[in-house]
Simulated assay, not measured.
Amino acid sequence: MSKQRPVAVALVASLCLLTTACAESSENSKDSKSTDKAAGAKSGYPVTLDNCGVTEEFTKAPSRVVVMNGASVAEVSTLLSLGLQDKIVANQQTYGMSEVPGRADAIKKLPTGDVKQNDAFDIPREAMLGLRPDLVLSTTAYGYDEKNGFATRDQLKEAGANSYVSPQGCDQDTSKMTIADSYQLMRDMGKVFNVSDKAEKLIADSEKNITAVSDQVKSEKKPKVMVLFSNMAMGGNDFSSVVAKGIYNDILAKAGGSNAFENASKTSFADLSKEKVAATDVDALVVIGYNDPNPGAYAKKLLKEFPQWPAAKNNKYVTLSDSMYLGPSNDLAVEKIAKMLHPDAF
């Protein structure tokens, strides 16, 4: 018996150790789940966005982002402003210039994915899938239209990629776009990449700058401004790239101006004859350079062509690029236009 006792004691001791280990294992499991949950909350994930009726869930920050062309620089500029350039594996957006020092060069340095654009001037389906993206950004829903040879949002999801359409782009009608949509794009990207603090700081700075400028000119008369893209044809008339509605009007209003051609079209752009343009009083010009190396020359040409305009008599014009469009730099456009329209207010 005396010889068996130590064995029995050892067995009991062993069972006790096992019981304790199981209890500790159970507690550790609970602690691990709590830690994972806390880590998830701290990391900001998962993030869920309802985007144009499509639910997109992000469990981590995307690392292979493809930016579609969309005749825009809104998305790529927003990513750059948030310091996310290293997440981009293919970018198709460029204006060739920017109001932000260094941004145009930074965009040029981004990888393009060596993509050959299709007839719809963007990334075709097979090329898109070959890039193995985990996030695709498009200015409007057009970028996911199968009829145009693009990968659909469903096809991208099947390939493991999230997709995103920028604000006001769901129905491809940007006529209701405002500066607030630029902030929404910034805010959404802040959430997706877990840099919301930086996004909110950029938004707050922009709002502060715009408010300061608007306060300076709020009592001034609102000149009639013609906004158009230089050397660009969008229709059949002589002036087919004249802005009628959209974010441009919001920028003009905050700069103390109004759009001379706001009622010329129900859509974002008006397709106008030379006679219509000549018959309209234009107090000032805002010329947007889209990959045009010298929009200033185009502005001077217009002022010479229509000497009856008050804009021509007073040489009132300003050239801009990305700050006039959806994106992170609308405050720069507001400031530049306001100082051109109301120099005595500053």
Rank of each mutant, 00 (worst) to 15 (best):
V217S: 07
G289E: 04
M177E: 09
E158F: 05
A299D: 03
P310M: 06
I203D: 02
L185Y: 00
V9I: 15
T35F: 13
V7R: 13
K147P: 05
K157M: 10
I107E: 00
V65E: 01
K198N: 06
E27D: 15
L252N: 11
G113A: 07
D122V: 11
E24S: 13
N291C: 11
V136A: 04
N91C: 14
S230N: 06
Y144D: 03
D271G: 07
T112G: 15
V115Q: 05
L82Q: 06
A299I: 06
Q216K: 14
V165G: 07
A260K: 12
Q168K: 15
N315Q: 14
D250Y: 05
T140N: 09
A120L: 09
S32G: 11
K316C: 04
A61V: 12
T55M: 09
R153Q: 12
A264K: 11
I251N: 04
G83T: 08
Y325A: 12
G236S: 14
L202T: 01
Q92K: 08
A180V: 07
A41E: 11
V115D: 02
L303C: 04
S32K: 15
V66L: 05
G149T: 07
K60E: 09
L49V: 10
D114G: 15
E275H: 10
Y144A: 09
S32W: 13
M186E: 00
V9K: 14
G83P: 01
D188L: 00
N69I: 09
